Simulated scan of single mutants.
Amino acid sequence: MIQFRAVKVALAGAVTGVLTLTACTGDGAGPSGGDTNIVQGTGEITHVPPEERQDVPDLSGETVDGDQLALSDYRGQVVVLNVWGSWCAPCIAEADDLVRVAEATADQGVQFVGINARDPSRANAVAFEDNHGVTYPSLYDPDGRLLLEFPRGSLNPQTIPSTLIIDPEGRIAARALTALSEEALTEALAPVLAEG
């Protein structure tokens, strides 16, 4: 009986840890304490002045569609990097808005890239993209390894959904730890586009 209880406690702790790391939040709860570097969705967008920006890791791998993609392929362009999962209600809520902004900014050289996180099946991710008319590529990251490539303490995507705006030099210019409306994303992109 004691061993069974210990296993239940350990399993509950593991599940809590995974949920914290992959929190799918719609309304922000704020940063967690300690030095865990785990942040729940705050609902805020952080903008970084050009002189303080950090390089984004050169994420690469297979896309949801089975193609190869490297983030460095888009150096010289503004990139909107959105972390999403087909199981995530706020991701579903923002998907159509992201597609509209991607279409509206394509002629300005903006490239959208997704990271499909924690979807155990590509079929779910493909269905999500089909349902929302997503035409930009998404890296397939079922175990969250790509998200771990961001250095500790960097302005990284810490929740699902998260969105980073990357400047043409490959540096993180802005981060949103929340689902974005069309208006909010357009507003966040504007100062980065104005730099060019």
Rank of each mutant, 00 (worst) to 15 (best):
G33C: 07
G114R: 03
R53Y: 11
P50N: 06
H132P: 09
I172T: 09
I166Q: 11
R53H: 11
L69D: 00
E129G: 05
D73G: 12
D65M: 06
F128W: 01
G170P: 12
D58A: 11
L59W: 08
D67M: 04
P49V: 07
F150V: 09
L139W: 05
V78N: 00
W84Q: 07
A102S: 11
D143W: 09
D167K: 08
Q77M: 05
N156E: 14
H132N: 12
V113I: 05
G170Q: 13
F128T: 00
C88M: 04
T63W: 13
D96S: 13
G85H: 05
D65R: 10
D107P: 01
Q77S: 15
V56H: 05
A104T: 08
P151H: 02
S72G: 15
A70I: 02
T135L: 07
N131T: 08
P31H: 12
P137V: 11
I115L: 03
S86C: 06
L146P: 04
G61K: 04
P168S: 01
A102F: 02
P157C: 01
A117R: 09
S32A: 11
V110W: 03
R145C: 00
L59M: 09
D107W: 03
L59S: 06
V78H: 00
W84D: 07
E129W: 06
L139Y: 07
V79Q: 11
N124E: 12
Q54W: 09
G109N: 10
E103R: 08
Y136F: 15
D141C: 02
D143R: 13
P157I: 00
P142L: 01
A93P: 00
S60N: 14
L98Q: 01
V126C: 08
E129Y: 07
Q54S: 14
V64L: 04
L81P: 06
D58C: 06
Y136P: 09
D141E: 02
V64T: 06
P137D: 13
G153N: 12
R152K: 13
W87C: 04
I166Y: 10
L69A: 02
V39Y: 08
L81I: 07
Q158V: 13
Q40K: 06
E44V: 04
L155H: 14
R75E: 13
N131L: 08
G41A: 08
G144V: 04
P57A: 04
D167Q: 10
L147G: 11
N82T: 14
R100I: 03
V110C: 04
E94V: 02
Y136C: 03
S32L: 15
R118N: 11
T163S: 14
I172V: 15
V113R: 02
F150T: 13
G30Q: 12
R152L: 09
G61P: 07
E62W: 05
Q54M: 10
I45E: 12
A95S: 14
R100E: 14
R171D: 09
G33I: 10
P161E: 05
L71T: 15
